[in-house]
Write a protein that binds this DNA or RNA. Structure first.
Length: 201
DNA sequence: TATTCTTGATGGACGCTCCC
DNA sequence: GGGAGCGTCCATCAAGAATA
């Protein structure tokens, strides 16, 4: 297992969304905000830090720690290393079977912590952009075209489902392909039942 | 051993910018 | 104006770890 440097460790058990680590604990140095942020009050810095959701901060901190460890084993500075180092890291991930969308998250995370190169974010670097394009071309994402559930099982369950509400909810879920949260948000309140001209929507 | 929790990978939605 | 591409974000799932 990879050793996490103290300044870039992933969150410990129990460090959940509402108590995401403050900027310093995930290695968020002034470098991340740029020179103009050096004299900003702590509250302002914290508000800027809150621009990203806690889950994203956790994710980025985790990816960054992986990259930091990878760099440290090669004697490189993760926050200011050359673009070739980053590309080598990405290539290694690809060789390990990671998908282009996973690489995309790594690049976003590295871009969040790494110093800009030629005044350009890592995510906008021409070589990185082309590398990701190439990886997508070689490994296109494969959407699931076949349902992972057994239709006969669903029909059996539907037959035995007594309350009409549950049957309706199940059928609605199947035909609308909505997530649980979307279905839960459906409401019969008047404010949610406004129709357009000619009942168009 | 069963259940719950955590972690990491992934796909896709959304908003924004750029270009035609 | 609209499509393409990008960065950000979130939901979901599988696998492994922790706990009852």
């Amino acid at each position: 297992p990879l050793a996490d440097p103290p300044e870039a460790r992933p969150p410990l058990l129990g460090e959940r969304d509402h108590m995401a680590p403050p900027a310093q604990s995930v290695g968020l140095t002034p470098l991340v905000f740029g020179r103009e942020s050096e004299n900003l009050p702590e509250g302002v810095l914290n508000m800027i830090f809150q621009a990203r959701a806690p889950s994203t901060r956790r994710l980025y901190a985790l990816k960054w720690s992986v990259f930091s460890t990878w760099c440290s084993t090669r004697g490189k500075n993760p926050a200011s290393c050359d673009i070739s180092v980053i590309l080598s890291f990405l290539q290694e991930l690809l060789d390990k079977g990671r998908s282009p969308s996973t690489l995309k998250v790594y690049v976003a995370a590295i871009a969040a912590f790494h110093a800009p190169i030629a005044d350009q974010s890592i995510g906008r670097n021409n070589l990185v952009v082309r590398f990701l394009k190439g990886s997508r071309r070689i490994n296109p994402s494969r959407p699931h075209t076949i349902p992972t559930w057994d239709l006969s099982t669903v029909l059996r369950a539907l037959k035995n489902l007594k309350p009409l509400t549950l049957k309706t909810a199940l059928l609605l879920a199947l035909v609308s392909v909505k997530r649980i949260g979307d279905l839960q948000a459906l409401s019969l309140s008047p404010s949610c039942l406004e129709f357009g001209p000619g009942d168009s929507k």
